[in-house]
Simulated assay, not measured.
Amino acid sequence: MDQEQLSGRRFLEVTVLNALITVFEFVGGLLSGSLSLLSDAVHNLGDSLSIIFSYVAHVISKRKQTKTNTYGFKRAEILSALFNAIFLIILSVFLIFGAIDRIQNPEKINGLVMLIVAVVGTVANLISTLLLSKGAKHNLNMKATYLHLLSDTLSSMGIIVGGILIELFNWTIIDPIITILVACYILWESLPVLHKTIAILMECAPKLDYAGINQDLLKIDGITRVHHVHALMVDENSIVFSAHVNMENMQLNQVQHIYDQINQLLKGKYGIDHVTIQPETTHGEDEDFFYDKDKDI
């Protein structure tokens, strides 16, 4: 089974699991009166929709480039990650406000029902999290979905603790407190994903050793200056780099040899996927590495 089929199967398995958890926790929340269970059920419902959305984006991102999408469709996953991060942040804010209201207006909670539902939810969420954990390391879309599932797992574990404390000591206030703690954790994990997706969509320069790139390029025989550099990320794993390179006056076949060295250096040492070089002799030789004198796009 190839990676594409494996990803599709795992997305399906996780979606089915989350749908079952949603129904189970919603019923359990109504029976027990637990806000944390009901909020977790709503969270799981959002997760199920998010997982479907993420998988569709994953499939679209694998399409080859076309005449109208010359860089391909990789940013479909970035858009999905952005959507998921925003959803998580909005959900967290609603959970916090709901928990504050429950602290001010406490209600009776059945700790035993809450505990049983939370244990089942924890096991199911943990399985879902493990299914997507590997892909989350190198893919923002998978990471955003993984964070959904991880937050659900932590939430369910917190609800277990809450259920025990309510059943033993009748500490009903622990229910909204757990809700607030989980919501704060979701915010903490979601904000970096939001920041990175926005940076990619705004075509911010990736974090590279630009001083090192400049020094290494100048070491190549025939290059006298590098300027007018642009760098951006198509997605979190694909970097595009372009530069104007001043070279000694030479024949075109010699320039090609320098191109090969530049490509080998940038791809091998700095992980840059797509390199575009504009060769020049003296034009722009007084310009800086990053062009900042006027608009050029």
Rank of each mutant, 00 (worst) to 15 (best):
Q5C: 10
L12W: 15
E13T: 09
T15H: 09
T15I: 14
N18G: 13
E25F: 04
G29P: 05
L31G: 00
G33M: 01
L35T: 05
L37A: 08
D47S: 15
F53E: 05
V56P: 08
H58Y: 15
Q65T: 11
K67M: 07
K67H: 04
T70W: 10
F73Y: 15
A76W: 12
E77R: 08
I86Y: 04
L88H: 07
I90M: 13
V93F: 14
F94H: 01
L95I: 15
F97H: 03
I100R: 11
I109N: 13
N110F: 07
G111F: 03
L115M: 12
N125E: 12
L126H: 11
L126T: 15
T129P: 01
L130R: 13
L131I: 02
L131F: 13
L132V: 13
K134I: 06
M142V: 09
K143E: 04
A144P: 06
L149P: 01
L150Q: 10
L154V: 13
S155K: 14
M157F: 13
V161C: 05
G162K: 05
T172A: 05
D175A: 07
P176H: 12
I186A: 14
V193I: 15
K196I: 00
I200G: 01
M202W: 02
A205E: 15
D221G: 03
D221R: 13
L232E: 03
M233V: 00
V234A: 05
N237A: 10
S238C: 10
Q254G: 04
Q256E: 13
Q256D: 14
D260L: 01
N263D: 08
N263Q: 08
K267M: 06
E280R: 02
Y291I: 01
D292T: 10
D292H: 14
